[in-house]
Amino acid sequence: MSTHSSGETWSVNTQGAVNVSFDGRPLVAVPGQNIGAALVSNGITAWRSTRKNARPRGLFCGIGVCFDCLVTVDGEANQRACLVEVQEGMEIEGSCADRGGRA
């Protein structure tokens, strides 16, 4: 999937780190970030593909309305990445049908 680097930080104390995994690959997130922000700031901007046309999807509405950003979190499917805060050891999985879910 496409990778883009994220913007710089804004008056935020980013001390401390939360270790999570995305599709088995380790990622470092900032405490208090939501999963969507953790993925985007690690250069992952799409983590799901659509059923019909296998089109990539990531964050869209950012506030829990559109359900575009769904991920599996610790085995719980269909969680909104924009709403769930990262926690140490969290296992996050995307669902990219055609690319084995890898970014």
Binding site: H4, S5, G7, E8, V30, Q33, N34, A37, V40, C82
Partner: peptide, 12 residues
Amino acid sequence: AFIKANGILPGQ
């Protein structure tokens, strides 16, 4: 919302 909740930007 992304900026307010996370303190970072979703791109450049």
